[in-house]
Structures are given as structure tokens and as C-alpha cells.
Amino acid sequence: MVVPSDNHEPRIVGFLCNWCAYQGADLAGTSRMAYTPNVRIVRVMCTGRIDPTFVLKAFSSGADGVIIAGCHPGDCHYSEGNYKTTRRIAFLRKLLAQMGIDGERFRLEWVSAGEGAKWAQIADEMSAAIKEKGPLAWRENLKEA
């Protein structure tokens, strides 16, 4: 039985691409960099795989924040996937703003396979920023007053 957390530590879902960001996060691990446990990672082969539906699913399932991390522009393992991601995220960000989910809860970052420290820093920063904002608690949002 998993007990829901009482101390409002944010739950952030991270979608990381296999070739750059996921490896970068692994590097943070092999380098034993300590950072917040609040980001939980879903591995995809390329950020170009990320359907906006996944992000909506994360928020509607209780995530307080979502981060997408992929290869730097020009370095995509599949050539251009991250450019498509940029386009989709630009649109998704506008939609989320209209839905009342503000930009701080949704980040797009470029993390290369060698940037373990950057990943750890991003995770910590985002967790701190969202903790300050408070939980999103989307299911509460659906309840009647």
C-alpha cells in the first residue's frame, strides 16, 4: 500500500530521450550527484515521440509538474526529432496556460549525455519552484465546490 505523501513534495514526471537526456541523468547517477527524488522519469527514444497527450495525462493523473528533456538542437540522435518537439511544446504551452497550468510547471530542457550536473540542477530547481507554488492537485479541481 503506497501512502500518499503528506508533506506536499512535488511529483514531477520527466520524459527523457534515450540518447541524450536519459544518459545525462545516468551520468548524474554514476557521478553520485545528489538531487531531489521528486522527478520520476519515463524513457522515450526521442522527445519527438512525446505526444502532448502524455503531458495532459501526467497532469490529469496528479503530476504537479512535467519536464521534457532531450538533445540540444542540432544534436538529435534522429536528426530533427527535437525540432518537432519544440513546435509541439510551443503550442502545448499555450494550451496549458489557457487551462490554468502555468509555465513553471512545464519545462522543456536540452540536456546532453555529458550534462549530468545540469540534469541534477534542473531537477532541484524545478522541484523547488513547484514546491513553492504548491500542488496542482488536478483531481481536486474536478470536484464540486
Partner: peptide, 13 residues
């Protein structure tokens, strides 16, 4: 992936 995302948040609510 959707199943994965939902289960990842098993303790979020």
C-alpha cells in the same frame, strides 16, 4: 506509455 505515466503517480493522489 500512458499506463506507465499513470502508475508513476500512484502515490500522488
Amino acid at each position: 506509455i500512458l499506463a506507465e505515466v499513470e502508475a508513476l503517480l500512484v502515490d500522488a493522489r
